[in-house]
Computed example of a mutant assay.
Amino acid sequence: MNTFVALCAVGAEKILGNEIKHLGYALAGNAPGRVSFLGDNDALYRSNFCLRTSDRVYLQMARYKADNFDSLFEGCYRIDWQDFFRKDVRVVVDKVRVYKSRINSEHTIQGMIQKAIYTKLGDIWRMNSLPESGNQADVRVYMERDEAVILLDTSGQALHKRGYRTEGGAAPLRETTAAVLLQEMMWRRKTPLHDPFCGSGTIAIEATLYAHNVAPGLGRNFAYENLSIYDSSRALEIKKEEASKIRTDVECHIAGSDIDPFAIDRAKLNAEHACTMAGRALQLIGSDMRIERPEFFVSDFENLHSEFENGLILCNPPYGERLGDEFQAESLYRKMGSLISNFENWHIGVITSQKSFENCFGKKASAVKSLKAGNLDTSFYIYR
């Protein structure tokens, strides 16, 4: 069994943990923004293909006591790095995080880990220097209470980059954050869903992938493909297994609207890319079926009305951080009160960084969840 560490938005650890358990893997603890779990060799592929709310998956290479630089170096040197890398590898210690540890210089820790890895590879391969002409391998280090955790990146590009979004507009919502919001609302495919500020269409597209059980990573590549442990035939088998789980027989009512026609054009294009990705996955198992595209149309949110008795409004309206200003955002939030009357008996979920949202909206939320989306501290207001 291997230990993996999946990163997520701070505040989404429980949701990510539930996802991991649903895949059949046992949890091994968590910390703010990350969840550890135990998995077999297949977990390397399946977690990257399937996790909707994780930003990145690491393989834990070692965990050991390190209260000085000698023990930090020795512990890293003991790792069998030669079993994972090719001889032309370029190793980068991309990030170091320190919490309550005696050795606390991130720069020095970074250099020491890099030196330990290259020293080990040079000793094993009898090379004075490595060519570093091949693919990059990223290593991350957590130093917490004098304990070092050494992680090897298996994802490459962050997992929110599914591969379907060509252009996100001025302030796009991360795909992984959209997936978290859907889970927070406990949304199910039979429930109509509408995003009245759809922008590039992320919420509606993520809902479509979830409703049709499309693993979000089926259309992209991963860093594990550059590692010596990569088994291409097994990865393809698992990809086919996940493709066979795609549902093409479900009826959904998923839509998004925006006052900006260019945003709607982007959303339609991104949705087409996402659904085409699912179609290519189905072709791997000999199926020519297709999944239903979400509907996108131009409309001011104040002109919207419910076509169904019940449903979910889920949206990411302008915060005033990158689009407009705080005054404009608060003015918009006051107008958003129309959603309550126009969508009576619907649940509503709104994510924003503005703490004044409830007062402007005119109604106290049933629940408020804190999420760190990107570099912004946001609140998710849930109205049931």
Rank of each mutant, 00 (worst) to 15 (best):
M112G: 06
L173Q: 03
G134Q: 07
N375F: 03
K161W: 04
D94P: 11
K245V: 08
V214T: 01
D300S: 05
S353Y: 03
G163M: 07
H347A: 08
H22V: 15
A329K: 04
I205P: 02
V10L: 11
S133I: 12
G256I: 09
L193K: 05
G217W: 03
L181I: 13
R234N: 10
V10M: 13
A329L: 06
L44W: 02
H212T: 10
V93D: 06
L72D: 05
G134D: 09
T378M: 01
V5Q: 00
G320N: 06
A26G: 15
S129H: 08
R334N: 06
L38S: 13
E309F: 11
E321S: 11
N270S: 07
S36C: 15
Q157F: 12
S155E: 02
E326I: 05
I150F: 09
A235I: 00
V141F: 07
T154C: 01
C252P: 04
L44R: 11
Y142G: 13
G11D: 05
G349V: 02
L376A: 06
V250W: 00
I150K: 04
L269H: 10
M1H: 15
L159K: 00
S257N: 02
D195C: 06
A12Q: 13
K65S: 15
I348W: 01
A211F: 02
Q60L: 08
A211G: 00
R90P: 13
C360V: 07
R247D: 02
C360D: 04
E237N: 04
D146S: 12
D300P: 12
S244A: 15
D42I: 11
V214Q: 07
F361T: 05
S200F: 08
Y64P: 12
